[in-house]
């Protein structure tokens, strides 16, 4: 038999790396999992080929959503007919909209601008056009805890220009 010691070392290194990556993922997911206490609730309803939004104070918006910078929002996402997926690529928000069930995801926009909202689960005839616009405006941040910012590119070049062009 070839000297199998190298193989054990190799497998050991691989396993250690996997454990490290798993722990890192677990550590980040821990914070992503539940929204901050005082986040505003937005009801998002997907239906075949358009998104409708309802703010806490009852105002309804179709195809457009106006949020404030620095305010955490909790999206309660459901669907009217088939599966959709509420996705804001630039703010890494993604949750499936399943009829008869409410999924929640939260985000705190940290940069003003116009972003793309799109559907990320196949839903039929114009799934590729099921998009909406997200406007993040200046806002008074009601977040008590310190916010850590790193210089990750605010918006991926593609999607920002996308919203303007279509």
């Amino acid at each position: 038999m070839g000297h199998a010691m190298i193989e054990w070392i190799y497998v050991g290194v691989v396993v250690m790396l996997l454990v490290y990556l798993g722990a890192a993922a677990w550590d980040v997911e821990r914070f992503l999992d539940h929204p901050p206490k005082d986040s505003k609730v937005i009801k998002v309803t997907g239906q075949q080929w358009l998104w409708t939004f309802e703010h806490e104070d009852g105002t309804r918006e179709i195809g457009e959503l106006h949020l404030q910078e620095g305010v955490p929002y909790k999206f309660e996402v459901t669907s009217r007919d088939v599966n959709h997926a509420f996705n804001i690529p630039d703010l890494t928000v993604l949750i499936d909209a399943v009829p008869g069930r409410i999924n929640t995801v939260w985000v705190m926009p940290d940069a003003t601008g116009e972003y793309l909202i799109q559907c990320r689960e196949y839903c039929g005839f114009s799934h590729y056009q099921m998009r909406a616009k997200l406007f993040v405006e200046e806002g008074v941040s009601n977040v008590s805890a310190p916010i850590e910012t790193q210089d990750i590119p605010v918006v991926l070049p593609a999607t920002k220009a996308a919203v303007v062009s279509n």
Binding site: K43, T45, E54, T78, R80, P99, I102
Partner: peptide, 8 residues
């Protein structure tokens, strides 16, 4: 029809 879905 479909009013059993919350929010509908």
């Amino acid at each position: 029809a479909g009013s059993s879905v919350q929010g509908a």
